[in-house]
Amino acid sequence: MIPARFDYLRPDGVDEAVALLGPGTRVLAGGHSLIPALKLRQTTAARLVDVGRLAALRTVELDAGVLVIGAAVTYAELAAHPLVRRHCPVLARLGGRVADPQVRHRGTPAGALAHADPAGDAPAIALALGVEVAVRSAAGSRTVPAGALFTGRRETSLRAGDLVTAIRVPAHDAAWYEKFTRVSHMWAIAGACAVRGPSGVRVALANVAATPWRATGVEGALRDGATPAEAAALAADGTDPPDDVHGPAAYRRHLARVVTGRALARVTP
């Protein structure tokens, strides 16, 4: 299985990288979403801009209570990093569990957000955490809230000249991601991330809609005093799960309620 031809550029800095971006160009970090898609010839790219080694994208730091994770930080690095383990255990745990060790050594959470696979774990977790994606482009820097990032199945509001530079994770009190799979290394058949923070509980689901799905009904019910179990019963409301070889839509709707209940049980006292 062999990808079609493309050019490859490896800039030395973020400014240079941004200058290279444009139509037909794809950003390459770990490549564990992009390279398989290129090999299967499901997607094409005229050229790849490799930002995987840019030092500016390889840092993890705390900025006034916000955890800032560089876009080229891998899952394995996330799992091992003391700041991530202390301030965002749900991402540290993901970093040690998603897919398999080899994939975790290359894949990046930021790349997963840009790839926006609704079956992915990182997008749902990011949505529940309320992360902001730091973006650089020729026009300057901006942040995009996760809630405004995912626009469709593997589609984002990012534009051709945009480079994701970091994920900014706000402080929270507790978070848990509950994933249901049949075999350990696979994508979630359905997953739910619950995050308890200063403004209440946020819940987002994986693989139940064309995008990572914010379960606002569950959140509202909790605010209105529902028990976690009562709130979890609303988890499938409004979802439009895929009907594929891993599970029919009705099963995923049911699983959405189950994993939401389990995730809520982990974050509600």
Partner: peptide
Amino acid sequence: PLTTDLATYTLPTAPD
């Protein structure tokens, strides 16, 4: 065919 690779045709690994 809907099962055309190891992402769609599920094989167990050691933990399974």
